[in-house]
Design a protein around this nucleic acid. Sequence first.
DNA 1: TATAGATTCGAACGAACGTTCGGTAAATAC
DNA 2: GTATTTACCGAACGTTCGTTCGAATCTATA
Lengths: 230, 230
Amino acid sequence: MTLASVETRLPHAVPEGRKGRSASEPVDSRFDRRLAKVLQYAAQIFCEKGYEGASMRDLSRAAGMSLAGLYHYFESKEELLYLIQKHTFRTIIERLHQRLAGASDPEGRIRIFIENHLEYFLANKEAVKVLTHEDDTLKNGRGAEIRAIKREYYKICLDLLEDLRKEKGLQFSGRLAVLSLFGMINWIYSWHNPRVDADAQALAREMGDLFLGGVLNTGKGRRRSAKARA
Amino acid sequence: MTLASVETRLPHAVPEGRKGRSASEPVDSRFDRRLAKVLQYAAQIFCEKGYEGASMRDLSRAAGMSLAGLYHYFESKEELLYLIQKHTFRTIIERLHQRLAGASDPEGRIRIFIENHLEYFLANKEAVKVLTHEDDTLKNGRGAEIRAIKREYYKICLDLLEDLRKEKGLQFSGRLAVLSLFGMINWIYSWHNPRVDADAQALAREMGDLFLGGVLNTGKGRRRSAKARA
DNA sequence: TATAGATTCGAACGAACGTTCGGTAAATAC
DNA sequence: GTATTTACCGAACGTTCGTTCGAATCTATA
């Protein structure tokens, strides 16, 4: 789970033979470790200046490595962004599955989703900002792959919500609920200040209260305020 | 309320005399109208490619005007972003004040806030994406001015929420509630599809239900689910 | 210690960037 | 109808961009 168990090995000029690592190979070579470090620096730079605004020279300065030297580890700036996004997403989903394994109560599972999301977000602000901010920067194959992972994550959350809906016999738009929840918890990167705001667990509880309070309340009796009905 | 009642007139090489329009001057000259058009194209381009990713040549192509000709209307790319953000923000706040003037019920006023926000967002997707996406792109003076407007907008929403809290005797973190609400309604630009999703009014009602349901429920008796308390 | 591969580098490539300059055409004022 | 300002343009400026190339230096094995 370092930031680089990835099939980028021997990026160019490899004559023949093994092209991509066959996945699930836990190698943690010198190459992998160095690439992980570089990806970390890159996430930081992309976070600060944005993908387009950041230059490879910025990265070379931050990583303490020459401009040309960087290209030993990946083949282009775009692949750099792809590797960061893919690793970040996959890690979040992997951890989520671990945590969900031991919980069956629908409401509790949604709270686990929120907590998992927020914990990773606040612990890896840079990478996550790159994930959400450079949302549709990647094109073609790499972009399609990242969008697929995103849909997978969306689907997990939607299923959790529909379990709750069935259990409680509620009526609400799953799509709207999921996207509202994503908005709440993704927006954090734009305001969270560790010196002012609570930690991930407390935030997850408060946001869980807010969101679940709304969902449970809205969907039940179609109760609406007089003002809204007017 | 065109996109350019702004003090950019006579951008450079003006020898002496009137520098900035003295504000509140409703002139809608040829210059202003053309600038408004250009700002519209610019919002579109910035929205598509991001501020850093968009080039002045892209804009010149979209606007059907030469590269050099553009600089007759503003002095730099950065000022372009500033003008878009300032006009967008000021318009949203101005309309909000108009709508709030006739409402006194705290819950209804929050619903007005949400509806005003969503209506403008969905009618001006490009400009709004530039507003939220290029959040801290501007530096120095221009950046400080935009951040001040943003704080003003935040404060309006916070006050609305605290009115509700007082009326109903609730307990909740105003900051967290405001920022959660902003997350919900700002995130829309990343997913809203007019062919699939409801219009602004319907969305505002549903999100209002969700948010107010949560706020009213959470803050009252400190009710929490067994799972969350465990 | 010799050999081979992995790692790193300085220097440069062509392309694209934001901006400027001198000048022409169109609109406005007198 | 002429003079003056406004609107616009082609061409270029200097800079920075992502990327490449050939060579130098490490590292590990035999």
